[in-house]
Amino acid sequence: MLSIENIDVRYGDLQVLWGVSFEVREREIVVLVGANGAGKSTTLKAISGILKPSSGSIRFDGIHLDQVPSDKVIGYGVVHVPEARRLFREMSVEENLIMGSLSRPAKAKRKETLEYVYGLFPRLRERRKQAAGTLSGGEQQMCAIGRGLMALPRVLMFDEPSLGLAPILVQEVFEIVKRIKEEGVTILLVEQNVRQTLALCDRAYVLENGRVVLHGTGSELMADGHVKEAYLGL
């Protein structure tokens, strides 16, 4: 469904990704794991068009996403929930959610999707008039996920959704990711929280220094000697 082939991405003169290839199949949860600076966020930014690869291709259902302007990517159903939430802090929770549904099909279903999101996150309904910047970290993450869902995603990409959250909330966020997958949305997840995400995912890719060094199913990677030593501390 989503296939990334051999992409190089650079920030000015600094090359961050080197020939990265992977694919995400329909209704899968795929995880990119790796240390800080391995290029995980950069990969998501390349898919959502904020950064353009200098070579290689990104295709989604046959569409060359690498040639689509960044503000048009969401219209194809490829939705990016960015690192550190990036909510519109001075706008209310509900306005933030509405901002997720600007495209024509999403706008047509705005009311229903809003109800669905409020059903998923009752806390957001309670706080819908409140400025997003005043929410707690966990609530902000829910608002960011809700905003992504408002776009009626076919692929939802999460960048470090567990960052800065208490362990109990991390568990909750992963539960929600699973639920969204069960609704038929394909998931691409970027995480440093390796142990929990490998347990959750269908397949995973390990990024090191901007290259894919390993891939396999979650349980395969959990049994892998290198992964055990470098990421699981065993």
Binding site: I50, D71, P82, F88, M91, A151
Partner: peptide, 24 residues
């Protein structure tokens, strides 16, 4: 209005606005 909200969103976080499909 959506256009008005997009203007405010762009003022608050331009990159996030682009991700939401705003032609900034």
């Amino acid at each position: 209005t959506d256009l008005g909200r997009s203007i405010r969103a762009t003022a608050q976080d331009k990159d996030a606005a682009i991700l939401m499909g705003v032609n900034t």
